[in-house]
Write a protein that binds this DNA or RNA. Structure first.
Lengths: 115, 115
DNA sequence: CCCTCCTATATAGATATTCGATATATCGGA
DNA sequence: TCCGATATATCGAATATCTATATAGGAGGG
């Protein structure tokens, strides 16, 4: 499942890149934003997010910079690179294709089921 | 990602159950049907399908029976049980929920981005 | 006749994604 | 002072899927 492997299982990467399209964010913020935006459907965990971000950075899809917060630990912000923007476009297209195919299969069956 | 783990990564199980909702099928047939139905998007591999079918059988979601073909090896047909039908309904609902959440996140960003 | 491809099922090992648990550090409230 | 929230990080485990390989019969070409 070429498409599946890197996309649907890896949908977290797509979601993170999508969030960064709008503005720079730090990790913790992403978790909350994603939860809110998805109406509490996506619960991205810290143990998933941080390794993912490091991976994206290695691939050059995002860059990172640190900034002190008013209180607490300094925050590590992530910024989408041009390459990241490109990858995002591709991943979005793949998702659309995947979702459409799912829809076609799920709709095709049931009652009358033309085949 | 509770939802994600068992559903989106496990979307193959959903697809297989969906195909069996219509009529009994044997493994090889499923691969071809799925490919055709999804407009060549899903390429379910033998090494994925057969272990998956065994798993579904163990869980009681499908039953299997063998039947000779006109030629070649005998075919192992799979039939959806009531329990399987129930699981299918649940998985379909979960998929809808997931797809909707994805749509919300992917749509929410971009230009105007209300938040 | 042999070799390869297509049908058909099956298993083992590899890879990737995500989670749970754990660790660190700072701040505010009970 | 101890706990919870913020904030980042890493490791081991679970799971899904893939690739490669094996078996087996039939059809077609060299």
């Amino acid at each position: 499942m070429d498409l599946d492997r890197s996309l649907v299982s890896g949908s977290m990467a797509l979601l993170v890149l999508k969030l960064l399209e709008e503005r720079d964010l730090y990790g913790y913020e992403m978790m909350e934003t994603l939860r809110a935006r998805s109406d509490d459907t996506f619960h991205l965990k810290a143990g998933t997010l941080y390794p993912l971000l490091h991976g994206l950075e290695e691939k050059g899809l995002v860059t990172a910079y640190e900034r002190e917060a008013a209180a607490g630990k300094p925050r590590r912000y992530y910024h989408l690179t041009d390459q990241g923007r490109c990858a995002l476009t591709e991943k979005e297209a793949s998702w659309q294709r995947y979702a459409r195919a799912m829809h076609r299969v799920l709709k095709g069956g049931a009652c009358c089921a033309g085949a």
